[in-house]
Design a protein around this nucleic acid. Structure first.
Length: 819
DNA sequence: TCCCTACCGTGATG
DNA sequence: GTACATCACGGTAGGGA
């Protein structure tokens, strides 16, 4: 039979000691399809150069006799093949060894121990990745497939009849087709529980949300006032119905918010307790949990997406949100937040409270569902571009994504994949310590007029490409025509001029990013935006990848050289501007701020062109924008200029603030707002008069206690368990207080507190004066003036020779008047 | 007990 | 456990006077 097919979820099974791929997806009519494909896993033995053909044949013969016995199977070598391959850019003879069961690839590889063997490779790649490296049945792309319709086939022990799909096909051939669009059926869910500790309390309710479907299932307090509420006699019955609904809706994607870490493990725990089968998988099995920092819950045939995890790795850098709570993220991305509900009421709930609780629960699923819809193009493109199943890409970090991209493109270079570093290797890499990074120019504090900001486009990626920096191009020693990079204290590094596959792939990524960015401009679809964005993220992460201790293609010299050459180029560009009589005010990593001075914009652009014509390879310095004014301040304690802290106002009056307390979430909202207003006024006016009047008023208000306490709450994230802190800072003390009150405290939480006035002695430390927002008390006026307001604005006024501290203490009038 | 500084910890920039 | 280095700053820890 022939049909159109889109692969969504990948699994595998063993039958008669052989491994088969089981791929779930849809056809173009929306029917659920499972396809079964056979695949002989293989790995490589790379031979030392100069190994004689006869010797290779001898080795080949011996390898073909190898078997590995385990309790459940015997794995055999199916066959071997001698190939001309490339390993780290060098041509090599290699033996391809196909085996019956991939789980024993490592064991078989271990047995291959001849003197002629240089390395053994690709035995440590998971089956599905390996399958797709080879067969290219890429996730979430459309194919026309041909195969045999299975109907209780004995060939696979009748596995097809156990699958909850419309039909099952034994794959014979497939071909990619043009079709792009795919709208998966998404079902969102969320649970509410008695006690947060995993499985300890009962699940009070479960909400489900999909297109034209909204339900809250509960066994608690059943009045039928809300039509979406469905009531059951017990938690057990509720769980059974949950399973039934998921099966009935039959989603492609089951989505939750932090559901890997909370909802699904909790559901599992309660299902076990209630002896309910949580057989959500299309194979009739329970979710499978993989260990990790956060466990991953996998459901066969249905992609469980914990959207929090995807947002954390791929999306958060584009968000303004200060935390990644569902409320904040949803508010920003879909303009709708969570409903209010006071969790402390659980246990003593009234009728109306339950009603509210059901609304709250449903809203969470609704938000999650909407978020999933909004972010779907990004997830889709990630999966297609990295060529890894959706389940993986939404959980993988960027280093893993870079690696996936590399592995699925190795074939183009006839390359054999590098191995994953073992623990002792990782230890060695970590012990190497840091290498020198970016250059940051110390600015002279001041308010500048007419500034120009310039930046290098994708600087580190363009350096890597232009100088050909990678593991496979690294040379052990100086060679003729080689690039020599001066790493300062660390000595020198050498790289070949012959293009390596890593820089080539990276240049391709940069090209594709450019291409889709342009296409998006002409045709602004969410899909094109997501695609161009995915390539941008890949390009940005590639530098970090080479310096990451866990990377297969780790190359410290390449990463260090990238940083060093970036530094060299930006310093040269700065010199060129200086030579043309521009004052260079600031520079950080890939950006340069200059004063336009008496030059015209055209003259600036001409200098820019000149600089560009001398830049190597694909490196380019771009005009970012012209700015009316720019503000740079000194560091708090010294007179030297503060790096990574500045504010600009564009010609259209838009203010851009970097690094100031205003953009830091661990300052109280009053200081942040006051500082941001002061910066804005100074940038707009070009003097400090208005800002000075404003700050006087604020200090006056604070002195009169007219500022509400909520504007003085300080929020700091608790990053590890309380017991692990060596320094007991205010936020740790606040967390302890919360714990003492029986409130849930866990790493990752934002801890809120304020500094109170506590009369008496022996309260010198700030931590001895902190209170939780709910604690009654008076805020400490002196503390807030001297530790939150003045530090935020003092050095702004200093630029105008105003000593704010003296002013605040009333010792002096406006110092400006003295001039 | 006071004062100074190194270090811890968080959260920014790019 | 899961890309890199650089930087500012508040606050505490802890030694010396």
């Amino acid at each position: 039979m022939e049909t159109e097919f889109i692969p969504i979820d990948y699994d595998y099974f063993d039958f008669n000691e052989k491994t088969y791929l089981l791929i779930y997806g849809r056809d173009s009519k929306g029917k659920r399809v499972a396809i079964i494909d056979s695949f002989d896993p293989y790995f490589w033995v790379v031979l030392k150069p100069g190994t004689k053909a006869e010797k290779i044949k001898e080795i080949q013969k011996i390898i073909e006799t190898f078997t590995v016995e385990s309790s459940s199977r015997t794995t055999k070598v199916l066959g071997t093949e001698i190939c001309d391959k490339s390993y780290l850019g060098k041509p090599r003879k290699a033996i391809k060894i196909s085996i019956t069961n991939y789980k024993d690839a490592h064991a078989i590889a271990d047995k291959i121990d001849f003197d002629e063997v240089e390395v053994r490779r690709e035995y440590d790649i998971n089956l599905i990745t390996k399958y797709n490296m080879d067969k290219k049945l890429v996730p979430l792309k459309w194919y026309k497939i041909n195969g045999e319709l299975l109907n209780n086939s004995e060939e696979f022990g009748g596995i097809d009849s156990n699958l909850d799909v419309d039909f099952c096909v034994k794959l014979e051939s497939f071909k990619e087709i043009e079709k792009q669009e795919f709208s998966p059926k998404i079902l969102a869910f969320d649970i509410e529980v008695e006690q947060l500790e995993l499985g300890k309390g009962k699940i009070l309710m479960i909400s489900l949300y999909s297109e034209n479907f909204k339900k809250v299932l509960t066994w608690k307090h059943c009045n039928k006032k809300q039509d979406f509420v469905e009531c059951f006699k017990s938690e057990e019955e509720m769980l059974e119905k949950f399973v039934e609904y998921v099966k009935k809706i039959s989603p492609d994607i089951l989505v939750g918010y932090f559901s890997d870490g909370f909802d699904l493990p909790y559901l599992r725990a309660r299902a076990i307790k209630n002896k309910v089968k949580l057989d959500l998988g299309l194979d009739g099995k329970n979710p499978r949990f993989a260990r990790g920092r956060i466990p991953s819950a996998r459901i066969a045939g249905i992609v469980h997406v914990d959207i929090f995890r995807f947002i954390e790795t791929a999306y958060s850098q584009y968000l303004q949100s200060e935390t990644l709570s569902l409320d904040e993220v949803a508010s920003e991305l879909i303009g709708e937040g969570k409903k209010d509900f006071d969790m402390s009421k659980i246990g003593k709930m009234k009728d109306s409270d339950w009603k509210e609780f059901f609304d709250y629960n449903l809203q969470d699923s609704k938000l999650t569902w909407k978020l999933a819809g909004k972010i779907w193009p990004d997830m889709l493109e990630f999966s297609r571009i990295m060529q890894e199943p959706l389940f993986e890409v939404v959980r993988n970090g960027m280093s893993k994504n870079v690696e996936s991209y590399i592995f699925h493109n190795l074939e183009k270079f006839n390359e054999i994949g590098e191995k994953r570093p073992l623990n002792d290797e990782i230890e060695k890499r970590r012990a190497m310590g840091k290498y020198a990074g970016a250059f940051v120019l110390e600015p002279k504090p001041g308010l500048y007029e007419e500034m120009v900001m310039l930046d290098f486009t994708s600087m580190y990626a363009s350096v890597t490409v232009s100088y050909n920096l990678s593991l496979s191009t690294k040379l052990k020693k100086k060679e003729k025509n080689a690039l020599e990079v001066d790493l300062g204290k660390e000595g020198k590094a050498y790289f070949s001029k012959e293009k390596g596959f890593f820089p080539l792939l990276l240049s391709e990524i940069i090209e594709l990013r450019k291409k889709y960015k342009q296409e998006y401009k002409k045709n602004p679809t969410a899909l094109l935006k997501a695609r161009s964005n995915a390539y941008k993220l890949l390009a940005n992460a590639s530098y970090g990848y080479q310096g990451f201790f866990g990377a297969r293609y780790y190359c410290r010299e390449a990463a260090a050289s990238t940083a060093a050459l970036a530094k060299k180029n930006i310093l040269e560009a700065i010199e060129k501007f200086k030579k043309e009589k521009y004052e260079v005010v600031y520079s950080d990593t890939d950006s340069i701020a200059i004063l336009q001075g008496k030059k015209t914009k055209d003259q600036v652009l001409k200098t820019l062109d000149n600089i560009n014509s001398d830049l190597p390879g694909i490196m380019a310095l771009d005009l970012e924008d012209f700015y009316k004014r720019g503000l740079f301040v000194s560091k708090r304690t010294t007179t030297s200029g503060a790096k990574k802290k500045y504010a600009l106002i564009s010609e259209s009056g838009k203010v851009k603030i970097r690094g100031f307390e205003t953009v830091r979430r661990d300052w109280c909202s009053l200081s942040r707002e006051v500082q941001s207003k002061v910066i804005e006024m100074v940038l707009e006016d070009g003097n400090s008069d208005r800002a000075f009047d404003y700050i006087k008023k604020i200090i006056d208000k604070l002195n009169k206690r007219q500022i509400p306490q909520e504007e003085l709450i300080i929020k700091t994230q608790l990053k590890k368990p309380i017991s692990e802190y060596r320094a007991i800072s205010p936020h740790v003390t606040a967390a302890k207080k919360m714990q003492d009150l029986g409130l849930p405290v866990s790493p990752g939480m934002m801890i809120e507190f304020y500094v109170s006035e506590i009369p008496g002695k022996g309260k010198k430390l700030v931590r001895d004066r902190i209170k939780l927002p709910s604690d009654p008390g008076k805020y400490d006026i002196e503390y807030y003036i001297n530790h939150q307001i003045l530090p935020a604005v003092e050095n702004i006024f200093e630029i105008f020779n105003i000593n704010l501290k003296q002013t605040a203490e009333g010792k002096n009038q406006k110092s400006l008047m003295e001039f």
